[in-house]
Nucleic acid binder design. Structure first.
Length: 634
RNA sequence: GCCGACGUAGCUCAAUUGGCAGAGCAGCUGACUUGUAAUCAGCAGGUUGCGGGUUCGAGUCCCAUCGUCGGCUCCA
């Protein structure tokens, strides 16, 4: 017998070899209907898993993230089977679950077209109706290799070859289809209730552009039709917050054919940007930063020295001046090095924190451009911190604090990644190890959870990245803290130590917003265009009811402008409702309706963007309120 | 850069098998003088992304190119 402890604390005895499914049957009820897989002693298994020792068993449903994962994973197998049935010469890549869905990669002579998705979807529904069981079995390595080689599955063969010698090679049979798969899976295809194929895309095999490009089909699935509909509805809603759409509607910025990846900021967008920069300067002054500005174009020699010529040339723009080669800066660091080098620094002066709102240009691949999120010219809210090696951890911690402080003003949630040595890197392994563990220690000491991003560091050092979400849940790297022992060497910068000798300082490159353009885009989506008052391009619009209230409207306007409040008066001969509708669509935080009543009493009728009509206030009182709101950035 | 889809008025979208490029909103002009999300009427607005080709005739078909969108890759 084996002793099984269930999630609710109950302990029961079962004969050895009892399957989890048998336990689920016995438990009955809703769980029996919803059970997908089970976590047995911490490992997720099929319901058909046979218990051969005492175990803690937790039955998982779609509500558990592991359950959801398996649900989508099985859905991807159904997709693969459907494609196999409908298309002759198909080789399979991989088909994992992803956030909110799944995909499968296919190598198929025929090019899938959007109407194929409907066909495939229908076939998937058929497979679901057939309620085919997914059966797990193991193959010995050479058998597995032969099996997949015989069936022409060259990608699967490659996957098996990549597995460690002692790996258990498992496969799942689903109807006439056998796939190499670690599992686990749902007991049968009928468990999948609502499935929808969403899009078609090319994807390199194993993510490398050296490999052939496969056709990827994305989809999602849910245990209830209503959940699928809700999800699709949510996607539609999210699209309404897309910063590209709002940027046009709110007249914030444009990107035109004449400058792909080179955004044009309109007056209203510029107001927001300036507010962000003002805020940035305040916070950085408070933390002991100075500010510099370095040129956009500098001599090629500088870039050879910095290592950019060797490591970053493909991303740079070049030009010639007086028959000499110059480069448009893709990063601000070399300029900062030049500034630091202009004078002697004592160890007593360190750390030196030098900020720069620096405009950089990078030649990004055309296919990667995306609104303001990925562009070819952007302003980094950069800073370089020159410090004693002993100050590294303190300074990194201070930057983390500053970043957190700034993100909190906007109410952002973010996740942190630690990126390690890339293939194409400068500096010794020891240097990288020391720098990487310094970053890791700071994160660990501050109890900040992070994921490791292997090989994703900058060419000169490891980094901590801060990622923010866009409206449809894609994350974008914004803040980053990069440790650099290379640049100080290359530029031979130094400080004079206590001993009167020259020493090499360590350098941190860091940004908080990251790119002001990208941060702006994330902000637009985060607020859905309804910016807090301090950021709103127009903070108040005055709406006179008829022409005879224009004089009072102008008085109110003058009073607001005198207090530095961004206000406009809508003097068009339109109805109040019309002007309000327009102000609402422009997401202006306050509308002041003024008519006879207000003109007489010196009040304003306040309509708040989301709360609606909130009644009349003396003008002075309104001004005091809005000023407080602006100052608090609330 | 690669794979796929798509480019029609400032915006959102129509245009039968290839057969006179159209509507709403926005804009302009006028009337209306309005109390919390669209007053009415009129006017104007286009080398259908750009360049070739097929055809009696191309927004529609073909080629090329630029751009956009969704991914891949890359990255702030």
């Amino acid at each position: 017998m084996v002793v099984v402890s269930l999630a609710n604390g109950a302990k029961r005895e079962y004969p050895r070899g009892t399957r989890v499914a048998d336990i689920v049957d016995e438990l009955g009820g809703r769980l029996k209907k919803e059970a997908l897989v089970a976590r047995v002693n911490g490992v997720v298994h099929d319901l058909s898993y046979a218990l051969d020792e005492d175990a803690e068993v937790c039955i998982l449903t779609f509500n558990d993230s592991d359950g959801e994962d398996v649900y989508r994973h099985t859905s991807s197998h159904i997709l693969a089977l459907a494609v196999k049935r409908l298309f002759g010469d198909v080789k399979l890549g991989i088909g994992p679950s992803i956030k909110d869905g799944f995909y499968y990669d296919f190598d198929c002579k025929e090019t899938f077209v959007p109407t194929d998705l409907e066909r495939i979807e229908k076939e998937m529904e058929k497979i679901i109706k057939e309620d085919l069981p997914l059966e797990r079995f193991e193959l010995e390595r050479t058998h597995a290799l032969k099996f997949f080689a015989d069936s022409g599955e060259i990608y699967k063969v490659e996957l098996i070859e990549g597995l460690p010698e002692d790996a258990v090679i498992s496969c799942y049979r689903c109807g006439e289809f056998v796939d190499l798969c670690a599992g686990p899976h749902l007991p049968s295809t009928g468990k999948v209730k609502a499935v929808k194929l969403l899009s078609l895309a090319g994807a390199y095999w194993r993510g490398s552009e050296k490999n052939p490009m496969l056709q990827r089909i994305y989809g999602t699935s849910f245990p209830k039709k209503s959940m699928l509909e809700e999800y699709l509805h949510r996607l539609e809603e999210a699209k309404k917050r897309d910063h590209r759409k709002l940027g046009r509607e709110l007249d914030l910025f444009s990107i035109q054919d004449e400058g792909p990846g080179f955004p044009l900021l309109h007056p209203r967008g510029m107001i927001i940007r300036n507010e962000l920069e003002n805020f940035w300067r305040e916070e950085h002054r408070r933390d002991g930063y100075s500010e510099i500005k370095t040129p956009i174009i500098l001599n090629r020699v500088l870039w050879e020295r910095s290592g950019h010529w060797d490591h970053y040339k493909e991303n740079m723009y070049f030009t010639q001046i007086d028959e000499q080669d110059f480069a448009v800066k893709p990063m601000n660091c070399p300029g900062a090095m030049l500034v630091f080098r202009t004078k002697m620094h004592s160890y007593r002066d360190l750390p030196v924190r030098m900020g720069e709102l620096g405009l950089v240009h990078r030649h990004e691949l055309s296919g990667t451009l995306h609104g303001l999120m990925r562009v070819r010219a952007f302003t980094q809210d950069d800073a370089h911190i020159f410090m004693l090696p002993s100050q590294i951890k303190d300074e990194v911690a201070k930057v983390i604090e500053l970043t957190d402080r700034i993100y909190n003003v906007f109410g952002f949630e973010y996740h942190v990644e630690l990126s390690t040595r890339p293939e194409k890197a400068m500096g010794s392994q020891e240097m990288w190890d020391a720098a990487t563990s310094a970053l890791r220690e700071v994160l660990e000491e501050r109890n900040i959870s992070f994921v490791i991003n292997e090989g994703d560091g900058a060419f000169y050092g490891p980094k901590i990245d801060f990622h923010l979400k866009d409206s449809i849940g894609r994350t974008w790297q914004c803040g980053t803290i990069q440790l650099d022992f290379q640049m100080p060497e290359k530029f031979d910068i130094s400080y004079v130590g206590e001993d009167g000798q020259k020493h090499r300082p360590a350098v941190i490159h860091r940004v908080v917003f990251g790119s002001i353009e990208r941060f702006f885009a994330v902000l637009i989506e985060h607020y859905a265009g309804a910016f807090p008052v301090w950021l709103s391009p127009v903070q108040t619009v005055i709406i006179p009811i008829t022409d005879r209230h224009h004089e009072y409207a102008n008085q109110v306007l003058a009073a607001l402008e005198k207090e530095g409040i961004r206000a406009e008066a809508d003097l068009r001969s339109e109805k109040v409702g019309y002007k309000i509708r327009e102000a609402q669509l422009q997401k202006i935080p306050y509308m002041l309706v003024v008519g006879d009543k207000e003109a007489e009493s010196g009040e304003v009728g306040v309509r708040e963007r989301s709360a609606g009509d909130v009644g009349s206030l003396p003008l002075d009182q309104f001004i005091a309120n809005i000023k407080e709101e602006i100052n608090n950035k609330s």
